[in-house]
Amino acid sequence: MNQPLHLLQGLILMLPERCAWCSADPLYVDYHDHEWGVPLHDDHRLFEMLILEGVQAGLSWLTILRKREHYRAAFDDFDPERIARYDAAKIADLLANPGIVRNHLKIAAAIRNAQGYLTIREQQGGFNAFLWRYVEFQPRQNAWPTLVEVPTRTPEAEAMSRDLKRLGFNFVGPTVCYAFMQAVGMVNDHTTNCFRHREVQELA
């Protein structure tokens, strides 16, 4: 039985407003509502997110979300010690895996980045401490009214990119680094009309 028009209009008004980049895809909505912008401090998961953000270059984030579980299986749950030791045979297996982005440069970058991660852990004590110093260990609380005002790179992201590249990381340009900073909650870039803006702000 069809719902009366006034009831449907009421349901629409009750729907939470989200950032304009979030589509209606349930996987994307769940990611937006529960992950994006939430401060993340686990070294392992920070490494995972940096790898996935690099893989996303030239693709949509939804494409990567749909492949994330395949990536976790293919890349040993993003264990940097194991990834750092991947050899030509393992690379060949990954290039044959339809569940991931079969790009040789991006696979090679994951290996180099794992090696860089181990260097940071040895020399600086941890990945979390290394990364969060770019925002002085406190999430930046932005207040962008609309998506068009949200930057794609910042001086902090540029500094992170330069430092990571010096350590041998690949696919870590300033735009990738800023997308990573947004994703792991180093900055709160939910637009002010989004219901998550205040919730994420309170998490800080």
Rank of each mutant, 00 (worst) to 15 (best):
N97Y: 14
L11I: 09
R85Y: 00
L147S: 09
I83E: 15
R72T: 03
T119K: 08
A57V: 10
E81H: 13
E69S: 13
L131D: 02
A96L: 08
C19Q: 08
G116D: 09
D33F: 03
A84H: 05
F137M: 03
A84C: 09
R140N: 03
L94E: 12
Q141H: 12
A89V: 03
R102I: 10
L65C: 07
P16K: 06
W132D: 00
L11Q: 12
I91S: 07
Y86V: 03
L147I: 06
F130D: 00
A110Q: 07
H41N: 12
G116I: 00
S23M: 06
F47T: 01
A89Y: 03
Q115W: 05
A74Y: 14
D87Q: 13
V135Y: 04
Y31A: 08
H41E: 05
H104D: 12
A20Y: 13
E122C: 10
A20P: 03
R68W: 11
L105F: 13
G54A: 03
V101R: 01
D87C: 08
P39M: 02
L147Y: 10
E35R: 05
R85C: 11
A24Y: 06
V38C: 10
D76N: 13
R102V: 07
I83D: 14
F127R: 02
V148T: 12
Q56C: 04
L11N: 10
P145A: 15
R68V: 11
A114G: 11
F137K: 00
A143L: 13
N128P: 02
G10S: 14
D77R: 12
Y86R: 12
E35P: 01
P98S: 04
L95A: 08
L27W: 07
Q124T: 06
D43W: 10
R82H: 09
I91K: 15
D30I: 00
R66M: 05
A109P: 00
K90P: 01
V101D: 08
P145Q: 11
D79N: 14
I107L: 11
Q115S: 08
D43Q: 06
S60V: 05
R82G: 03
N97C: 11
L147D: 07
A129N: 10
R85H: 09
R18N: 06
V55T: 06
R45D: 00
H104R: 14
Y28G: 04
H41T: 03
R66K: 14
R133S: 05
C19R: 08
S23Y: 08
S23Q: 09
R102C: 14
P139A: 09
D93T: 06
W132S: 01
C22I: 03
